[in-house]
Structure formats: structure tokens, C-alpha cells
Amino acid sequence: MAFATASSFVRCHMLHFPSALTGRRKNSGNSTRDIHVVSAWAGLAWEEITKIGIVDGIRPCAPVTREENTVMMNRLRKNLLQLIAGNSIVLGELEKRLQAIESECGFTKCPK
């Protein structure tokens, strides 16, 4: 079983070998796509997410590894934690307002 898995792994990577050499990858169909050029529909989002440092701004159309995904999620997590830390008073007030609205409407907290 391990040999079959290893064989599949090698074959899969061999399919991508020519595109890895050229920096281009195949998309659906027979055309190739430059991994360094962002799609028109994603341009604004790519620009925004690059400005805030979630991505490095290179290879927008390349596949994402688990390592790259982990780094991006961690950068986003740090941004969210800074946002929450800077708004802890506001969040506390919002929590109180939410509890008041829930009690007025007859909602109760879910049992833990």
C-alpha cells in the first residue's frame, strides 16, 4: 500500500513538472496561465490583502501550500487579535447590549 501511495505521489508531481519549470500552470482546458498575473476579478481583493500584509504579493495564481496557508492564517489571526485588543471596551458594551436584547426577546443562554 505504501508503494502505491508513493507511486501516485510521484506521478502527480511529474504532471506538474513542465509548468514548474516555466512558472506557468494549466487551468481548466488546454490553455496555460501565468501564475504571476492576478485575475481581473480578484485584482482589488489581491491588492487589499497584499497591502495589509496577509500575502506577499507574488505568484497570485500559484497553488498554496499548507505552510503558506498557515502563515497567511496566522497573519490574519494577529490582525484580528490587535483589532479585538484595541476595541475591548466597545466589545464589552456590545456584549451587554446583546444580552439586554436577548433578555427582552425572551432568549436565554445555551447551557454549557
Results as ranks from 00 to 15, higher is better:
residue 62 A to D: 14
residue 56 D to H: 13
residue 6 A to L: 13
residue 69 N to K: 05
residue 31 S to D: 14
residue 20 A to W: 05
residue 69 N to G: 15
residue 57 G to I: 02
residue 80 L to D: 03
residue 23 G to A: 04
residue 23 G to N: 08
residue 105 C to K: 13
residue 108 T to Q: 11
residue 109 K to T: 07
residue 95 E to Y: 05
residue 89 I to P: 01
residue 43 G to P: 01
residue 101 I to P: 02
residue 88 S to P: 03
residue 41 W to C: 08
residue 24 R to F: 02
residue 108 T to W: 01
residue 66 R to I: 03
residue 57 G to H: 06
residue 30 N to V: 09
residue 16 H to Y: 13
residue 49 I to P: 02
residue 99 Q to H: 08
residue 65 T to H: 02
residue 87 N to C: 05
residue 8 S to M: 10
residue 50 T to Q: 06
residue 96 K to S: 12
residue 66 R to N: 11
residue 36 H to R: 15
residue 7 S to F: 07
residue 50 T to H: 03
residue 47 E to H: 10
residue 72 M to I: 00
residue 102 E to M: 03
residue 88 S to D: 08
residue 67 E to G: 10
residue 45 A to R: 09
residue 96 K to Q: 12
residue 60 P to M: 01
residue 89 I to C: 07
residue 20 A to P: 01
residue 94 L to A: 14
residue 46 W to L: 00
residue 40 A to C: 08
residue 47 E to S: 13
residue 82 Q to T: 14
residue 108 T to D: 04
residue 36 H to G: 13
residue 42 A to N: 12
residue 7 S to K: 09
residue 36 H to S: 15
residue 64 V to W: 07
residue 12 C to F: 12
residue 32 T to M: 11
residue 86 G to C: 09
residue 23 G to D: 08
residue 88 S to E: 08
residue 63 P to L: 03
residue 81 L to P: 02
residue 99 Q to P: 03
residue 17 F to L: 15
residue 91 L to Q: 07
residue 35 I to F: 02
residue 18 P to F: 01
residue 43 G to C: 07
residue 103 S to M: 06
residue 38 V to I: 00
residue 99 Q to R: 14
residue 78 K to G: 05
residue 54 I to T: 10
residue 61 C to L: 11
residue 112 K to P: 11
residue 28 S to P: 09
residue 63 P to F: 04
residue 2 A to R: 05
residue 104 E to C: 06
residue 54 I to L: 06
residue 107 F to S: 12
residue 37 V to N: 06
residue 62 A to K: 03
residue 56 D to W: 03
residue 54 I to P: 06
residue 31 S to R: 12
residue 43 G to T: 12
residue 70 T to P: 02
residue 46 W to P: 03
residue 30 N to G: 15
residue 97 R to P: 02
residue 89 I to Y: 04
residue 75 R to T: 03
residue 38 V to S: 09
residue 8 S to H: 12
residue 64 V to I: 15
residue 63 P to E: 12
residue 111 P to A: 14
residue 1 M to H: 08
residue 20 A to F: 07
residue 76 L to A: 14
residue 52 I to M: 14
residue 49 I to H: 04
residue 112 K to F: 01
